[in-house]
Design a protein around this nucleic acid. Structure first.
Lengths: 114, 114
DNA sequence: AAGGTAGTTCGATAAATGTCGTACAATGGG
DNA sequence: CCCATTGTACGACATTTATCGAACTACCTT
């Protein structure tokens, strides 16, 4: 079990970087999609965002380094999951509040709309 | 009663800009200070942040344009208040979650520590 | 082993951001 | 009316950010 990328520990999560990671409409949509589905999502599941792969990689890294998502390799794919427990433990209510507000802004980007 | 600056209406508040405004440690401290005190604060009350006046003006504008604070002139001073009601109405739980998490990061900047 | 699929890395670039200093504007008190 | 106090506006600058495309790596399938 090798660590592909650095994931900050729960205790290391900091508010400002977390808020910054949340503050981009594209990343907000990623978080929304991860929260909505029960299954982890592949990076490729976000083609509908309209940005190329390398840019997606960039946004995923911002989310990962802030401690919002966890990424683990699964074959050639890489599965992403929301670190819901860690976020709720460290910043109670934050994720829920963000998710509740997100649909207003993410509506135009939603995969359901495409 | 002239409108000194543009303040977005409650319905116009958008999540991403609000999160972005929150995502700076200095601005987080401003919000924390406004939430902690019952009284509106003058811009000058934030000298302890260690940034010059013009930079403070910049941060206040980011907060104001996101809809987080309201600024109104009072004599030569300008009083700032948190738009708590509007934030709570538009993004329930968000402000509380941010405030609950803020002290961890803002401790080093707090006026009490100075 | 060959090839294809899934992501990452890297360099380039344009735009946004945080910061400062100086100059300016508005207000209220002598 | 002058001036001190508050805060704003503006220009400069360094840093960070979002974005792309091209080249590369890792892994599975055949």
């Amino acid at each position: 079990m090798e660590i592909e990328h650095e994931h900050p520990d729960r205790e290391e999560l900091e508010l400002a970087p977390v808020l910054h990671a949340f503050s981009d409409p594209l990343r907000l949509e990623v978080v929304r999609a991860l929260a909505a589905g029960a299954e982890p999502l592949r990076c490729g599941a976000f083609e509908y965002l309209g940005i190329v792969k390398s840019t997606r990689t960039h946004h995923f890294r911002v989310l990962r380094e802030a401690g919002i998502i966890r990424q683990e390799r699964k074959g050639t794919a890489k599965l992403m999951t929301l670190r819901r427990d860690d976020l709720d433990a460290r910043f109670p209510g934050l994720l829920d509040a963000v998710l509740a507000g997100a649909p207003h802004d993410a509506a135009a980007l939603s995969p359901a709309t495409a």
